[in-house]
Each structure stands twice: as structure tokens, then as C-alpha cells.
Design a protein around this nucleic acid. Sequence first.
DNA 1: ATTGAAAATCATCAGTA
DNA 2: TACTGATGATTTTCAAT
Lengths: 154, 154
Amino acid sequence: MKLDKLDLKILKHLQEDSKMTNKELSNLLDLSVTAVYERIKRLEREGVISKYVALVNPEKVDKGFMVFCQIKLIQHTKSYLTKFEEEVTRLSEVLECYHVSGEYDYILKVLVKDMEEYREFMVTKLTNLDHIGSTLSTFIISKVKNTSAVNLLS
Amino acid sequence: MKLDKLDLKILKHLQEDSKMTNKELSNLLDLSVTAVYERIKRLEREGVISKYVALVNPEKVDKGFMVFCQIKLIQHTKSYLTKFEEEVTRLSEVLECYHVSGEYDYILKVLVKDMEEYREFMVTKLTNLDHIGSTLSTFIISKVKNTSAVNLLS
DNA sequence: ATTGAAAATCATCAGTA
DNA sequence: TACTGATGATTTTCAAT
């Protein structure tokens, strides 16, 4: 799908604040409200905009402890990978999971309340999954940058 | 801030779809529209909801290549850390950056078009920052799970 | 804290250039 | 593709409880 400068500008704004009204956007871009409206609808239809979400501050809901957990499977048959991926997807503490290159097979971003809840998560959930080999936990000391906005105008 | 079951339910829904109307929420939760409205305003005021954003599909905007980049600084004086953090925050390819425990000091989530753009990023931007020691790049082979929704009802 | 209803604002859709 | 104008929906405010 072809995106022109106006599309990119719309995306850039909506990635920062999706409550921005079409009227506000139309002023910023010097377009009519309907033109903005049609472009946004097209971006949604084409899947460029996948969804609209509210971002919750984890600290405010007692989930201030973030951990990157790297995982090695004991074997790499297709069925092992698939099974692991299905199971890990169901874990609500796991916000993100990627199959990666390198020494480990997967990287998980895990969000919990504190170290105790992480221990609990490891013992009762993660290490209970089939085919798990070794794991390596890396704890977040501080958040330097965290945005959901994909870099568009570059 | 105290959050009751209704607050958590509202958050759970808005984390999945922030376009949901107050009327829809009021039906789901058996509340009046105004009650829902006031609760959401309170969640925004208190910073529980930090922002509303449109999520863009990276592949559709030619940013289909994600890399976790771990970084070790050559020294750990406060001024070195601060300087690095300021500079890395300005890099648009870097969506996330965390100060972490373990062998490396920082983990970056980097989003670019392809390996060539990543090479370019490393050579012209990252390794140009002051005080960078060694780096370790871990490439994403596939996305297993990726949500922005913080686990609330558990 | 919640309600119901009014007022203001907005999204949406025809018709048209 | 984009625009104007009309309509219905939604958000927001407010008096009352």
C-alpha cells in the first residue's frame, strides 16, 4: 500500500494520541475533515493501523517489575516449538515473546508486581512448560525509553 | 489509588480497544454512561491510563525487522550513563531502552526495515555514541506474542 | 458515587466538483 | 481524491439524589 506524506503525518499523530479528532488533524494538515476521515478509514481497512488502545501505567496497577527472560528449549523439533509457543501465549504475565537468533531460542518480556511474583511465575508457570531447557532472567533497573510509535518520517 | 473491580474491567476493555464507547462499556458493566465516563476521567487524571494510541503494523510501513541490542558501556560513572541515556532516547529507531541487570548494561528494542538498515543504524548512530563498549545483537525470527495490555485481573 | 437528560461536539455519509 | 452540508451518535456537563 502506498502511503503519501499526509498519511504518514496522520499516523505520526495518531500513534502519539489517538483521541485527536479529525477536526484537529484537518487543521494541522490543511485538509477537510472528510479527507482526513477517509484516509484514516483506509489506513484501518488496509491494516496499517492495527488497533486503538489505552496504555496503562504498570506501576499504578501494581505491575512495576519487568523482566526479560531468555529461554532455551531442550530440542528444536517443530512440534516442540509450536507447543511452547501456544502455551507461552496463554500466560498473561508475558506481554511479548519472540523467537530469536543467538544462544537462546526465545525472549520474553514479563510483567509482574515484584521479585516474589516473578519467582512464583517462574516456578509455577514457566518452568512447568514442556521442553524448557535453560533460562536467563535479566531484570529491568530503570526504563530509559518506551514508546509504541513506529518511526515513520525518516 | 484504589481500583475496584469495575475500574479493572474498564481498563481491561480499553487496553484492547480504546474506541469502545462509554455506552458499550455501560452495557457491559451494567452502569450508567456517566458513571463509566467519570471513572474513565478519574483513571486518566490519576495517570492509570497514560495515553491513547493507534498501533501501527510495522510491516505495513516498511519496518519489519526487529532487533534486541544489548550494550555494555566502557565505564559506569553517573555522567556516562546519563549522557548515553539522553542520546539513545533521541534515536527514532529505538522504541525501547532499559537499564538492566546482568552482563550488559542496557537492552534496546530497535525497529528498522531490514538488515541493511540495521547495519546503517549500528555504524552511523549507535556505535557513534560516547562510552559504548561492546554490543550484542539478537535478531527476531518471528513474533510469537505482542500485546500492550498489562495483566490486570489475576 | 450514581443517575437522567440537555448541550456541545464529533463521526459518518450523500451528493458533487 | 477531496469538499460541503446534513444527520445521527457520542461525549461532556449539570442538577438532583
